Computed example of a mutant assay.
Amino acid sequence: MTPDTHVDAETALDHAPAGHKDDLRLWLRMLSCARLIEGEVRRRLRLRFDTTLPRFDFLAQLERAPDGLTPGDISRRMMVTGGNVTGLASRLEEEGLIERRAVREDRRAVTLRLTPQGRREFARQSAAHEEWVAELLGALSPNDRAALLRLLDRTRRGVRAAISEGMP
């Protein structure tokens, strides 16, 4: 398919039967926006810091938990497998960004914490990340942002309610 004939999923809905077309279009639009922003953040992290979004997210989890987190905690928070956490933790520890500490109550268990170097590096990355997101959303006025936040919050609550009601 050539670029001129490429049709995205949202455009393809123009020929779909009536009904839930607007709901699908809205979902695809939200997904498209999220993917565009995520892709650009990934690109900029790679270019500016030679890092990845999963590494950034890993450091962010530890930054929010100064007392440290277990690998299982990080796995649940990031919604990734334990193997992914183990690999990332090993590389970040080798780079001096995190440290492992034995848990007093259970010497077999460990917590992971940012090192001072890790805190400094995450502060640099998160400041840039915040600027990038602000730039990418810069076309929205403060009123637009507030309205979108309200609508997305209502959407999230509605989705959670639908899930808890066990919709098929």
Rank of each mutant, 00 (worst) to 15 (best):
A89H: 07
R91I: 05
E121I: 09
G83K: 13
N84M: 12
M79P: 00
S32L: 01
P168H: 07
A128P: 02
S141Y: 04
R124S: 10
L149I: 11
P17S: 06
E99K: 14
I37C: 09
R120M: 12
A161F: 12
E131W: 07
A146H: 11
R43I: 00
L13S: 06
D106P: 04
E131G: 06
A109G: 00
V133A: 07
G83P: 01
P142V: 03
I163W: 06
R46T: 10
G158K: 09
E38V: 11
G166W: 01
D22R: 15
V80H: 04
P71V: 00
R76E: 13
S32W: 02
D67W: 00
D22N: 13
T81V: 05
R43W: 06
R157D: 14
L59G: 03
E40F: 03
G166C: 02
L137M: 13
A134D: 14
G83M: 10
A18F: 10
L140S: 08
F56M: 08
D67N: 09
R100V: 05
D106I: 00
R55I: 03
T111H: 11
R44N: 05
Q125W: 12
Q61A: 15
A12Y: 03
R145F: 09
H129A: 06
L36P: 00
G82D: 09
A18T: 12
R120P: 10
P3W: 00
T115I: 02
L69A: 02
L31E: 13
E165V: 07
L88Q: 14
G166D: 01
A162V: 05
L53S: 08
D23G: 14
V41A: 06
F122M: 07
V110R: 13
D50S: 15
